[in-house]
Amino acid sequence: MATILSLSNVNKNFGALTVSDDVTFDMPEGQALGIIGPNGAGKSTLFNLIGGTLAVSSGTVQFAKQDVTRVPAAERCRMGIARSFQIPHPFVGMSVYENLLVASSFGNSGHHDAKAECRDILDRTGLLPKANRPAGSLTLLERKRLELARALASGPKLLLLDEIAGGLTEAECHELVETIKGIRDSGVSIIWIEHIVHALTAVVERLIVIDFGKIVAEGEPSKVMADPLVQEIYMGISVDDTAA
């Protein structure tokens, strides 16, 4: 399998604070990769660096064999990197459908029938009944689904999902897992940051653990979760999990 994403010695500092510390990993195309770690570990920051919302302090980001370290976020989206925001950023004054249209008009999707494509995505994410409602009228959970739907509408090769399962009931969580499996099976590479570990491990084949900006463990999910170091950090996560 070709490598879709490759981070080499990526660092990010905010002043004296190091939020990404020498992060290096390769991701084969079609992989579903999970990222866990305590609050403030630097997970979302990593997404900002991969998506181009933030510039790296040093190191390189390669996407589909191209160095994208200095490429603006919009251009990266057009190349096929789509992300959801942990704190939803809906276009509140537009309808749910129009939110998707933005992504499908300006993203990577070269599809001919944007309308049908958006309808299909809205259907898969359960937002079809709200298609013509203003996005500003959605509940928080619906806004999270919109983050997923909008990212999908951009036609991604690599999908970055940042904590979209928080607050769901067991049944809803199961549904979401099935949706994400479907996306993975359609050939999209996925990186999923999630505190709800059982949902994550139901989908991903590889797990990366981040603590204080550093990768502290990675590999096959069951082995990573069995690691004593991770167990220690995981305690922290399960506490946050119940708080969420």
Partner: peptide, 25 residues
């Protein structure tokens, strides 16, 4: 037009518009 989508998206959230492929600048 298509540019209206971009403009309205920028109005509502510039970071999200940028992340969805709109060359906001």
């Amino acid at each position: 037009s298509k540019w209206g989508l971009a403009l309205t998206a920028i109005r509502d959230s510039e970071p999200a518009a940028e992340a969805m492929g709109v060359a906001t600048r």
